[in-house]
């Protein structure tokens, strides 16, 4: 036994065994119910577009990393998350070539140019959506009604409100279940919540961001004279509040910070919807708040043990 030599390592010598890849794959699994609903609602074209987005994101990540001689990180699942979320934020009838263009913006520009996973300031999928929205506004706002597997133009609930169209608004039940038009992954609040329960249970997200996001959105909508329940259920609020404002890398660290972040997102969303040029404001509100994340982090540190305040 005396010749035996052991490994020197810093403590702790045990751990939970959780990894970045496991976190990301749990997020991917949580997104599957909403994806299934998107395909059910909008047909095989939605599935093809989603597959194209995921494949493009993985390909761009691998290619850029290969080009710069970096370790290939595709297997950690984060590019898949970005691909899924990118697709979830596109109208079902968007052309397939949106996928590689969006992936280039999301992965090459918003993620890898900033240093890769952990260093990006803006949510990659939303950065891509914002880019596509600015570049191809018409294609990004041509919708299909729920259940239409072929190209039929229709208005979304938020579009009806924005343009003051003389069309019937869907019922709350239709909005909650997702029997409405919209982006591929945003329509069914129910199925998005089902996935979110998994993430909450696994401590991959905390309640702070979605609660304050949707709470502030409802409150602010009420203030500006809109229907608060409709504001929460229509458009991308539920998708944004549970899956994009909760993006670990680009949102604040502490519970307090996440409350501030979510509240900012909710308020800005309501303001854009009411006074902005677009019917929907979730994407821009989150991107705007992403820019404030470092500041929020600094101002919302937990209370330190043995002190009155947490601020350093």
């Amino acid at each position: 036994m005396s010749e035996r030599v052991f490994i020197l390592a810093p403590g702790p010598h045990v751990g939970t065994g959780d990894s970045v890849a496991r976190v990301m794959w749990r997020v991917n699994i949580a997104l599957l119910p909403a994806l299934a609903w998107g395909v059910w609602s909008f047909g095989p074209a939605a599935l093809a577009l989603t597959a194209a987005c995921v494949a493009s994101c993985m390909a761009v990540e691998a290619l850029v990393e290969l080009l710069f001689g970096r370790a290939i990180t595709v297997r950690d699942g984060s590019a898949v998350v970005t691909g899924l979320l990118l697709a979830f934020n596109l109208p079902p009838g968007a052309p397939l070539w949106f996928a590689p263009v969006g992936a280039l913006v999301a992965i090459a520009v918003a993620k890898l140019a900033f240093g890769g996973l952990g260093f990006n300031i803006f949510n990659p999928a939303l950065a891509a959506r914002a880019f596509l929205m600015a570049s191809y506004p018409a294609r990004m706002t041509s919708w299909r009604p729920y259940g239409a597997w072929d190209a039929v133009s229709a208005a979304t609930p938020l579009g009806i409100l924005k343009e003051r169209l003389d069309l019937p608004l869907p019922s709350y039940a239709d909005l909650f279940l997702g029997r409405v038009g919209g982006c591929i992954g945003e329509t069914s609040a129910l199925l998005l919540l089902a996935g979110a329960v998994l993430l909450l249970a696994g401590r991959d997200i905390t309640w702070h961001t979605p609660a304050s996001f949707l709470g502030a959105l409802a409150g602010m909508s009420l203030l500006v004279g809109a229907d608060p329940l409709l504001a929460v259920l229509a458009g991308g609020a539920v998708l944004g509040a549970f899956y994009m404002a909760t993006d670990m890398v680009t949102a604040p660290l502490s519970g307090g910070g996440r409350l501030v972040f979510g509240a900012g997102c909710g308020i800005i969303t309501a303001v854009i919807r009411r006074w902005g040029g677009y019917p929907e404001g979730v994407c821009y509100s989150i991107l705007l708040m992403n820019a404030f994340t470092p500041l929020i982090d600094r101002c919302t540190q937990p209370r330190r043990f043995g002190s009155r305040r947490g601020r350093g």
Partner: peptide, 15 residues
């Protein structure tokens, strides 16, 4: 990746 778990478990309330 800034998941924030370390903030919730730090017994000294640090980040």
């Amino acid at each position: 990746i800034r998941c924030g778990l370390c903030l919730t478990v730090c017994p000294m309330g640090l980040s």
